[in-house]
Design a protein around this nucleic acid. Structure first.
Lengths: 202, 202
DNA sequence: GCTTAAATGGGGTGGCCCTCCGGTTCTGTG
DNA sequence: CACAGAACCGGAGGGCCACCCCATTTAAGC
């Protein structure tokens, strides 16, 4: 869904489109500063828009977050597509999960948004980013599975849940990015000493 | 700190103690229903107490949560002490982490509370449960480490962060307990197929 | 330019957290 | 028992928030 049309039938009015864009920009700023719980009223204020207008364009917080993060998530999906040609499927999956973690850690609110999208699976309520990323990862996992690099009983939902959980856990720490990478590698390789060291997430 | 004394010097007045207990009971109910974000005003209402009284007894939400969960955390620490005599140190650690996960999943708000306690390490602001559990686990980890069952570069903070993160991620799902157990086992053993299957978290 | 449907935003409602302060209740001392 | 002082209480109020209603404004198509 391109951001500047409502349905295929009727295009948005010019002023509505302008306000939509302003709200989105203001929301990106505010979320970067205050995370997923940023005040909607402040976003409206920054956008120079009444609060009712914000609620009309984005009936729920989740929908607004989805719109804010859509392009980042698309970039992640593109990364997945690029990694699909890697020679080592297991490494490709690990790399991608690491990339996801890096995106999630550096974009405050993304983790909360993706996880919120996860449990209410209704796309009309704003789970599209979650499904996009799930679909993108599913291929990488399938390839890794065929190459016998990953257990059969692991689903892409499991792995992404792990990534999100880790990122959420370290979100408020100063060295979040480093910790997330460490914990993700740990989770992928396990705690046992002789576990393979070939699972770096770079 | 026993709940019915303020300092060693002066005991609490009878009415204050009564209100303290009522608030705690009401908070336990409310948190069980609505999680760590339960409304403080509703807790005061249920306890039949003015909101000011609640804030006087528990100056911050975190302190209230700590009080609510203190006995559960103590039980967990006792479990750790009991497991310290297990023949297989690695298994003992895994079992305990599983027990932690089970407690955290079945007590809404505990995960958020422990994690909040984690990043502001100031005990006066309510990080005591976090440090209690960390200390209890440290021994189990040290033993497992000496038995060469766990990598040297893994800290108990890492492991508990993992457990908490997983529980937080599955908190809003219907089969949370089962998922948490699955994901924890996955994180401990790693995703590779030939990883040891001896790391069940039962 | 004019009509009309779409879009707007100020203001209201109800909720939340937290603090102040006048009134109340307990406690131990005379 | 009576009482004074300290400890404690809780309603009221301020600041902030999400969300909705509806009179008013504005863009789009003729």
């Amino acid at each position: 869904m391109p951001p500047h049309s409502r349905t295929a039938a009727r295009p948005m009015r010019a002023d509505a489109r302008r306000n939509y864009d302003r709200i989105l920009a203001a929301a990106a700023e505010a979320v970067a500063e205050h995370g997923a719980e940023a005040s909607l009223e402040e976003i409206a204020r920054r956008a120079g828009v009444g609060s009712a207008t914000l609620h009309r364009h984005f009936p729920s917080r989740q929908l607004l977050l989805e719109a804010v993060f859509r392009d980042k998530v698309e970039a992640l999906c593109a990364t997945a597509a690029g990694l699909a040609a890697e020679p080592d499927p297991g490494q490709a999956l690990a790399n991608w999960l690491g990339a996801v973690a890096r995106h999630v850690v550096t974009n405050r609110g993304l983790a909360a948004s993706l996880m919120r999208g996860a449990h209410d699976g209704d796309p009309s309520l704003g789970a599209t980013c979650h499904t996009m990323i799930t679909d993108a990862g599913a291929d990488l996992l399938a390839r890794a599975c065929r190459a016998n690099a990953v257990r059969r009983d692991v689903s892409i939902t499991d792995l992404l849940k792990l990534v999100n959980a880790i990122c959420l856990a370290v979100e408020h720490e100063p060295d979040g990015a480093a910790q997330a990478d460490r914990l993700l590698t740990l989770a992928l390789t396990g705690v046992h000493p002789k576990a393979g060291s070939s699972w770096a997430t770079g």
